[in-house]
């Protein structure tokens, strides 16, 4: 029997606490659970550690003063290579950074998902990453090295323990089985397994049997074992892309990025789009059906 895990954005936010470490799925400005991000912006939550292949999720939350620390492989809007709000946060020192090699971030999530303390990798050796983040240590292999001498000393990428993960999928059932219909799952499955609680928004909640009718079974990569709550959120990834349902809203992304240039612009943007409900947002940006 498929359980009923349906929630609203507000009910998800009520499950979150100040100071939590929260992973956000997607990649740069692609398939981000933006309606959940906007709900956090509206909330009183603070001092969050955000783990992400970052895009406007990190930028918006930084601009709204929600982020104590960002853990990321990059923070980009794709067509705008550097996330402007995040840049300001970094350059003004208002946000602490754990700036990882993209592959190291994958390994940290995988280690947490598998409940091991670290995973070994060559990535990071020799770079300044280990010097800037001395909390990342190395480990010597117990097996002989390639030339028969002592074992190789590799980076021990620590597990990134997550209190919660937020992801957005194209389709889901009410129990949390879900599918992605675009080109890439990104690391959403790893985040969902690494997190204590995973909250998933979706373009549409459908009966379970419809999932297999919508895409091949290879697209059904999220199972209800990984999911705590499901939010039906049509256009929930706006303004990031969510193919094949919709592309990125480039015009709106530009408008968002431009607000970095003054506090007045940001305040106006926030008042116009973010201070109301999600329904207000969708009316204001013109995507509500």
């Amino acid at each position: 029997m498929i359980p009923d895990k349906r929630l609203t954005e507000e009910e998800v936010v009520a499950e979150l606490r100040d100071g939590m470490t929260i992973a956000i799925g997607g990649w740069a400005s692609r398939r981000k659970p933006m309606s959940l991000v906007r709900a956090i912006v509206r909330s009183s939550l603070k001092d969050l550690t955000i783990v992400s292949y970052g895009g406007p999720d990190i930028g918006l939350l930084c601009a709204a003063g929600k982020v104590r620390k960002a853990v990321y492989g990059f923070v980009s809007l794709d067509t705008i290579p550097l996330e402007p709000h995040f840049r300001i946060a970094r350059q003004s020192g208002t946000v602490e950074a754990m700036e990882l090699d993209e592959g190291m971030l994958l390994l940290g999530l995988q280690a947490a998902a598998w409940r091991v303390p670290f995973l070994p990798t060559r990535a990071g050796l020799g770079s300044d990453l280990l010097r800037m983040m001395p909390e990342i240590l190395t480990v010597r292999s117990p097996y002989p090295g390639p030339d028969g001498s002592e074992g190789e000393e590799l980076v021990a990428m620590p597990a990134i323990e997550l209190d919660a993960a937020l992801i957005h999928m194209n389709r889901a059932d009410q129990g949390g089985n879900a599918q992605f219909l675009g080109p890439d799952l990104y690391m959403d499955d790893l985040m969902a397994m690494a997190a204590g609680k995973t909250f998933m928004s979706t373009e549409r909640i459908v009966p379970t049997e419809e999932l297999a009718a919508t895409g091949s079974f290879h697209t059904q990569r999220i199972s209800r074992l990984m999911v705590t709550g499901v939010v039906e959120a049509p256009h929930g990834a706006h303004f990031t892309e969510c193919p094949p349902d919709y592309g990125r809203d480039e015009a709106f992304q530009k408008e968002y990025a431009a607000t970095v240039s003054s506090a007045e612009l940001w305040d106006a943007f926030r008042a116009k789009y973010l201070d109301g409900t999600e329904a207000d947002y969708q009316r204001a940006v013109g995507v509500s059906s």
């Binding site: 990321y72 990059f74 550097l82 020192g93 060559r122």
Partner: peptide
């Protein structure tokens, strides 16, 4: 291509480490 200035509080935040450490080691 991570940043210009002190990494802890950069003068200009650029791309971050992205894939460079892993690429060059592998």
């Amino acid at each position: 291509f991570a940043c210009i200035g002190d990494w802890h509080k950069p003068k200009a935040q650029l791309l971050g480490f992205r894939g460079a450490p892993g690429n060059t080691m592998n």
